[in-house]
């Protein structure tokens, strides 16, 4: 019973929404929209669990005085301050000062860290390129050459070297690149469909725990 009911739910809903894809009528569309709304309401409780997990994770660090434990207080305070200000300043309570502080925290604290992390990507790009450069296998060399050509094709320097480079880069993107991506997509499509089917039919059950036994 413990496992049968969830498996039955997955089977019934899975078949229903597969069929729904082929039924354009109004009733079908309304059912789809309503289900998604209901799903959102239902799923907000997962957020409660997730939040509980995060708080527990940091509370343990503080309790065990793990190295740098005081940083855990920073996280907990961040959640409380940002969450509190946002809700007080939001449409439910409309406290102007809270909304102001919330906006500033977002614009001058959260967003800059976000952009800085993104900017770091450029440095990692350099180390990844170096790594690709050192790779010895024949396949890695193919990757490196094609990457180099495409990169040269985008930057003005490439065209300065030889005026045909941008054309070659474009051709690599549009022809062999396209072919490989389509080939991979077929596999992904079949793999994803097979996984969805296995879950709907109850063959893949590791989500129930117990690895399907």
């Amino acid at each position: 019973m413990k496992q049968k009911l969830p498996l039955l739910i997955v089977l019934v809903l899975g078949i229903f929404f597969t069929i729904q894809f082929f039924v354009p009528s109004r009733a079908s569309e309304v059912t789809y929209q309503t289900t998604l709304q209901w799903w959102l309401v239902m799923s907000s409780f997962a957020m409660v669990l997730a939040l509980g997990s995060l708080i527990n994770h940091h509370a343990l660090k503080i309790k065990r005085r793990k190295e740098g434990w005081w940083n855990s207080w920073v996280t907990l305070a961040g959640i409380a301050v940002m969450g509190g200000l946002g809700i007080l300043g939001g449409p439910s309570f409309r406290m102007g000062w809270a909304n102001d502080a919330y906006t500033r925290l977002f614009l001058f604290v959260q967003a800059p860290m976000d952009s800085a992390m993104f900017a770091i990507l450029a440095f990692y790009m350099a180390s990844a390129s170096y790594r690709a450069f050192r790779a010895r296998s024949r396949e890695a060399t193919v990757l490196l050459v094609s990457g180099f050509v495409v990169m040269l094709g985008i930057i003005p320097f490439g065209a300065m070297l030889w005026h045909r480079i941008p054309d070659i880069a474009e051709w690599v993107m549009m022809v062999p690149n396209m072919a490989s991506k389509r080939g991979i997509l077929f596999g992904i499509g079949l793999g994803a469909t097979a996984t969805a089917l296995k879950i709907i039919l109850g063959i893949e059950r590791s989500w129930l725990g117990g690895g399907g036994k």
Partner: peptide, 21 residues
């Protein structure tokens, strides 16, 4: 570490069950 709340709940259940198994 998880990024999505629901993924977290499922991941937790799976790992716990794996230990039980």
């Amino acid at each position: 570490p998880n990024r999505d709340p629901i993924v977290y709940t499922v991941a937790e259940a799976i790992v716990k069950e794996a230990y039980a198994e």
